[in-house]
């Protein structure tokens, strides 16, 4: 009998892919549940404020949009494309800023996020994938069950990825680990900043409360949800333009709110690509930001597939 680890693949040595510790798993799942409930509490608080006090203001929406964009980009440009896939190089200050913004999303510290994401790519849509909608079965009921799991169920069921296996490159980066250790401080900062900014602009405590709710809690819920669209819908519905070895899909209606990550089939076909827009009409906001960072001299070595590589993996028109 060969030795396998619990992700289902043969072990290569002493270092396992996942850590089978009940307490660690439980504490990570509790973290997910608290973050989700905080987001829902924010929605309820915003409704109450709107009913009891005054309708949602332009300031509320502006604060929400600003922090959604900044922290969402921390996850997509930072955690995902830079740290998990090393799709481009960046200056130490840029790396730090992206890591801090990404931590504010409360989706786990950068090392955890990267390790789980690399685990996802290794097993994408096969047993061992922490969030695939395609493993529950093929009946209508099982399809729905799979989608629910890949949307939110996985957040309280996923394995604990072993950073020694999946994220050794990050563990060796002292500066990044300094940021990683202060994860909860960054989450707090992501709540305090919008509250302070909104309070200052509105010149009132109520303004600060609205900033906390809109730029903090509802923003947290929104960034969680765009990631869940990718983990579920972007492996279920839409076009598959490239051979990617999994069920990942492209959708413009997912790509817009997810800051470009909805070109998910492009991403799984070419995981190191920094810019996921392979056609002029494929809008990728994160890719545009990476190009902007390059223009400013903050990023370089932008990985992009060659036209020949794209053509080689292109699927025949169905």
């Amino acid at each position: 009998m060969s030795v396998t680890d619990s992700a289902g693949a043969p072990r290569r040595g002493k270092i396992g892919r996942v850590i089978n510790d009940r307490r660690l798993r439980r504490s990570q799942h509790l973290h997910s549940a608290v973050a989700t409930l905080a987001g829902i509490a924010g929605l309820l608080a915003a409704s109450l404020l709107a009913i009891l006090d005054r309708p949602v203001s332009a300031l509320d929406l502006g604060i929400f949009a600003g922090f959604f964009l900044a922290i969402g980009l921390g996850v997509t440009v930072g955690f995902h494309r830079h740290f998990a896939h090393r799709a481009f190089q960046a200056t130490p200050a840029t790396r730090a800023a992206l890591a801090i913004l990404g931590c504010m999303a409360a989706q786990g510290p950068v090392v955890f996020w990267v390790a789980l994401h690399r685990l996802h790519h290794e097993f994408s849509d096969r047993p061992g994938d922490p969030h695939s909608p395609n493993l529950a079965g093929s009946s209508a009921f099982q399809r729905i069950k799979g989608l629910l799991h890949a949307y939110i169920g996985w957040t309280v069921r996923h394995p604990v990825p072993n950073a020694n296996y999946y994220a050794r490159d990050l563990l060796a980066d002292r500066r990044l680990m300094w940021i990683n250790r202060r994860y909860y401080a960054w989450i707090a900062l992501g709540l305090v900043l919008p509250a302070a900014l909104s309070g200052l602009i509105a010149q009132s405590a109520l303004g600060a409360a609205e900033g906390l709710v809109w730029g903090g809690l509802i923003r947290l819920f929104a960034v969680h949800n765009i990631i869940w669209w990718i983990t579920s819908l972007a492996h279920a519905a839409g076009r598959r333009d490239y051979l990617s070895g999994d069920r990942s899909t492209n959708n413009i209606w997912i790509a817009l709110p997810t800051l470009g990550e909805g070109w998910h089939n492009n991403h799984h076909g070419f995981p190191r690509a920094a810019v996921l827009s392979f056609e002029w009409w494929q809008i990728d906001i994160s890719g545009l930001v990476i190009r902007l960072l390059e223009r400013c001299g903050l990023a370089w070595d932008i990985h992009a597939p060659t036209p020949a590589a794209l053509a080689a993996r292109r699927r025949g028109e169905a």
């Binding site: 002493k14 270092i15 396992g16 850590i19 089978n20 307490r23 950073a163 020694n164 563990l171």
Partner: peptide, 23 residues
């Protein structure tokens, strides 16, 4: 090895020994 790496190491040791250890 920072705390995260040592937690990973203890997890692997746990797996090898087949007993639960404090992370």
């Amino acid at each position: 090895l920072d705390s995260l790496a040592s937690v990973g190491m203890i997890g692997d040791l746990e797996e090898w020994l087949g007993v639960e250890l404090d992370p």
